[in-house]
Amino acid sequence: MNTRTILTPATTAMDSLRHEFDRLFDRVTIPGLASSWPTRLLDSMGPHPAANLLEDDDNLYFEAELPNVAPEHLNVNASDHTLSISGTRTLDTPDDATSLRRERSAVRFDRTMRLPVAIEPNNIDARLDGGVLTITLPKVQPARTRRIAVREA
């Protein structure tokens, strides 16, 4: 008897499953072909993370998306006109696992941004919530001007 024919059904079950996954993941990840959704940068977590900056009357708000970055692996430094963040992001790989698709990466990152207005470096609040880092940077308040009434002599 041919050994190969006996083994075929069992391996096919596994193979077809794996192929189906591969094929679909391949299809899904080809930009423009698989999905009509706008493609975000495939790996937004690069060595220089993207950042948004918002402003209201009192503060600047620096925001960056840092999924799976632990607060203890994140450094924030500020001076009156610059803000820097740096750190490392790790990936949790399941034990004894075969990788079928990798779009995420473990990186050491840093990013420096020049701020449009002066801020108070001693009064900064940084929080990491759901993988989103938000840093509140209080603006330096300009010396208050007072209107002086001029008396008529």
Binding site: R18, F21, F25, S35, W37, P38, T39, R40, L42, D43, S44, M45, L91, T93, P94, A97, T98, S99, L100, R101, R102, E103, R104
Partner: peptide, 8 residues
């Protein structure tokens, strides 16, 4: 589209 890793 969120980036994904897939493991088996």
């Amino acid at each position: 589209r969120a980036p994904v890793d897939v493991y088996e």
